[in-house]
């Protein structure tokens, strides 16, 4: 196990290096970044001066070297617009995105898994119909459209939730979420929820007819215990990977949802920085999101090995 974790860690380092490579050359591919940053009326001397200042006049290899050296220490340079280190900006936006992503994940787990379970155990029933409907709609409804409708109904007409923004509530120095997170989190959770419903349903349906479930019944184990110990336990294994992948996607921040709700998270920051051609910040966010995904995949693989004794590396 330790050897497996070590080798996966080394792999992850290589993946992240590849990400850095792409992130760096992404900037080179857009042409001369300086001409995009500077006013159209600037003199050639001004352009040259800025190029000198930002280090774009150095050979590409040297630029890449200093980029990597900075990236390893979390230094992606200063945001051109905010005049602050890019990483600091990301870290300041991170709590909002974590709050949103965690709430969305929690909602999709709490609603999706029980629905999938009930549906999988009673194929053809009302709950099964509901679960298939949820699975289909969750994965096909564009979440930005749904978000607007939700705002219209629940915020504008009913006034139950704020229309935008993040309110927090501080108790004993802890920052706690308020109901302002619910609408964006629900809109964001729908896709993951749909996937969880579908996978849980099909996993339960498949495992229900496994030989070992019949064995459990043949031992005289009560229905409820067979479900919990034999069916759920086995159905949980494929769900681990979905939860891992989806949480990575949620944590990278959703551009649409955060923009619609003016949620001060990473997605919002990314949208803003792309609009401003704030290259250092875009690079930093791209790398940070990849880092989160790689890290969560690593955790997922480890969780897999812990949950399924047949997997041994």
């Amino acid at each position: 196990m330790q050897r497996y974790i070590l080798s996966r860690l080394i792999q992850s380092v290589f993946i992240l290096f590849g990400v850095l490579l792409i992130v760096f050359f992404m900037l080179q591919l857009t042409g001369d970044p300086v001409s995009l940053m500077i006013s159209r009326h600037a003199t050639p001397e001004d352009v040259e001066a800025l190029r000198e200042e930002l280090g774009f006049n150095r050979p590409v290899a040297v630029q890449f070297g200093s980029f990597i050296a900075g990236a390893v220490t979390g230094d992606f340079g200063k945001s051109l617009r905010h005049k602050q280190p890019a990483m600091d900006l990301i870290l300041s936006r991170l709590p909002a995105t974590i709050e949103l992503a965690a709430t969305a994940l929690l909602l999709s787990l709490v609603l999706g898994i029980p629905l999938g379970l009930v549906a999988g155990s009673n194929p053809g029933s009302f709950w099964d119909l509901l679960s298939r409907g949820t699975g289909l709609l969750g994965q096909t409804i564009p979440n930005f459209w749904l978000a607007l409708i939700l705002v219209l109904v629940f915020s504008v007409h009913l006034g139950w939730f704020p229309t935008f923004g993040r309110d927090t509530w501080t108790v004993l120095g802890l920052t706690l979420p308020t109901r302002s997170v619910l609408l964006p989190a629900f809109s964001l959770s729908l896709f993951t929820m749909g996937q969880l419903v579908r996978f849980t349903r099909s996993a339960v349906m498949e495992i229900r007819s496994e030989d070992y479930v019949r064995t459990a019944y043949s031992k005289g184990i009560a229905h409820r215990k067979v479900y919990i110990r034999h069916i759920l336990r086995n159905a949980a294994i494929p769900l681990i990977s979905i939860v891992g992948v989806q949480f990575g996607y949620l944590l990278s921040g959703s551009i649409y949802i955060e923009t619609i709700f003016s949620w001060p998270g990473l997605g919002n920051l990314l949208a803003e920085s792309i609009g401003n051609r704030d290259f250092a910040l875009v690079q930093a966010i791209a790398f940070f999101s990849s880092f989160v995904v790689v890290f969560l995949n690593l955790l997922t693989d480890i969780a897999y090995a812990l949950a399924d004794p047949r997997i041994r590396y």
């Binding site: 030989d211 064995t215 110990r229």
Partner: peptide
């Protein structure tokens, strides 16, 4: 049962 590999719960 016939096939003890599939008739026993793999994760217990």
């Amino acid at each position: 049962f016939q096939d003890a590999l599939s008739a026993l719960n793999p994760v217990m």
